[in-house]
Design a binder for these strands. Sequence first.
DNA 1: ACCTGAACACCGTTCAAGT
DNA 2: ACCTGAACACCGTTCAAGT
Lengths: 232, 232
Amino acid sequence: MTPPSSARARPGPPRALSEAEILAAALRLLDQGGPAALSVRGVANEVGVSPNALYTYFPTKSALARALVEGLLGQVDRRTLVDRSQPWRTRIVAFALAVRTLLLDHPGAVPLLLGSPYDGPNALASHEELLEVLADAGLTPEDAARAAYLIITYILGSIALDVAEHDPAAAPLDEPARTAARRAALTHIPPGSYPRTAASAEVIAAYNTTTQYTWGLRRLLDGLAGSTATTR
Amino acid sequence: MTPPSSARARPGPPRALSEAEILAAALRLLDQGGPAALSVRGVANEVGVSPNALYTYFPTKSALARALVEGLLGQVDRRTLVDRSQPWRTRIVAFALAVRTLLLDHPGAVPLLLGSPYDGPNALASHEELLEVLADAGLTPEDAARAAYLIITYILGSIALDVAEHDPAAAPLDEPARTAARRAALTHIPPGSYPRTAASAEVIAAYNTTTQYTWGLRRLLDGLAGSTATTR
DNA sequence: ACCTGAACACCGTTCAAGT
DNA sequence: ACCTGAACACCGTTCAAGT
C-alpha cells in the first residue's frame, strides 16, 4: 500500500528546501568567508535556488541572521551550568568556556550575535540558569540579576575583542598562533611612548588566551563573592 | 603683495577636500542612519564629490572606518584617568563612564569599534594609562596588564550589548526611555518557563543603565583589589 | 596630486507570473 | 505554498582620462 501523498511525507519532485537546510548553508558560508560572505544570494546559490526563494522562509536577511544566532546558542553545552551538585564557580566557569569554545569555532557569527538583541529562547534559558547558580551562591535576587548581566557582558565582550583581530576570510588560527601574531605586532609599538605596555608585552600578547579569559572571570567572581556572606 | 600660490595656502578653485572633512561627513551619516548609512557613495555625496574621489584619502572603506574610530577614541575624556592625585578606583570609573558617554552619543560607531583591532594611538594610550593606574593600585605589572584587559573587555562588552538593542536608524532614546522599552519587552516572556527572570524583571529592565554599569565595574574592581595588599 | 565618467561585479528586496 | 525571471535601487572598487 502506497501512503497517501500528504505534504508531510513526500520526497517531493524538485527540492525539499527547509529552514534547517538554509541555516546550515548560511553557517557554512559564514565559517568560510566571514560575515561579508553571508549574502542572501550566496545562501540561495549554496542551496541551489534563486535568491528570492529564501523569502518564503525568512522575511529578511536579518531574520535569517537572528535564527542562525539562536541556533548556535542552542549548541552551547549547559550541562555543568545546571548541575547543582557542582560548586557555583565551577558551573559559571564551565558555561563561560563553553560559550567561548563554540563562538571561536564560528567567529563569523560573533558580529551577528552582538548585532542582535539577546532575547531568544536559548539566551533566556542561559539567563535563567545563571540566576539560579547565583542564587545558589547566596546572592539576593537583585544582586543575582546584576551579576548575571555582568557575567554575560564579560563573556561576550572578551570573545568580541578576540574575534575582532582575525581576518574573517582567512583560515582560523589556533591559540598559540594567535598569541604569536599578537607578540609580533607588539614589537612594532614604540617603547618610549608606551613603556608599561612594552614592559608587559608577553602578558599582552596572551590577552586572547583561555588563561587570560579565566583569570578575568575569576577576578570578577571574586568581586561577586565579596558582596555575599557564603561562598561555598 | 599677494602670497605665492603655494599648494598649502590657496583657498583653491573647486574644493578644499580634506581627511577631516570626510571623517566629519562620515560621522554625520553614522549618527543619522547607523552603520548601514555609512557608504562610500553616501559620504562622497555628503561632501559633494564623486564616489571614487575618496580613494585619494583612504585606500578602502575599512581604512576610513578605522580612522573614524580612532578619531572618536581621541575624544574620550581621560583627564581623571591620568590624575594621580585621585584614588585609583575613581580614575578607572571616570574613564569607563567617559567611554560610555561618548559611544552612546555615537551608537553607530560601536559595531565599527568592535570590528577593528584595538591598536590605534588612542587605544594604546588608554591602555598605557590603565597600566599606570593599576600599578598605582598596587598590582604587579603582570596582574596590571591582565586587569587592564579585563576592564577594557567589560567596558566594550557592556556598551556593545546596550547598543545592540537600538534601531540604528531611529532617533536615540534617553536612558529612562530605553529602560521602559526593555520593561515592556519583558512582560512578554512566559513566567512559567523563566520564573527567576520574571521575578527580577525590574532589575533586568535596568540592565542598560549607568547604575548597572557602575555596579558591575565596582564588583570587578573589588575582585582586582582582592588580589593585592593595598587598596588605597 | 586630485578629481571625473564609466564600468564591473556585486548587494537586499519586490513584483508579477507560473505550478 | 513555493519557486522563477526580471527589475529596482543600491553597493565597493578599478580604470582610463582629464587638470
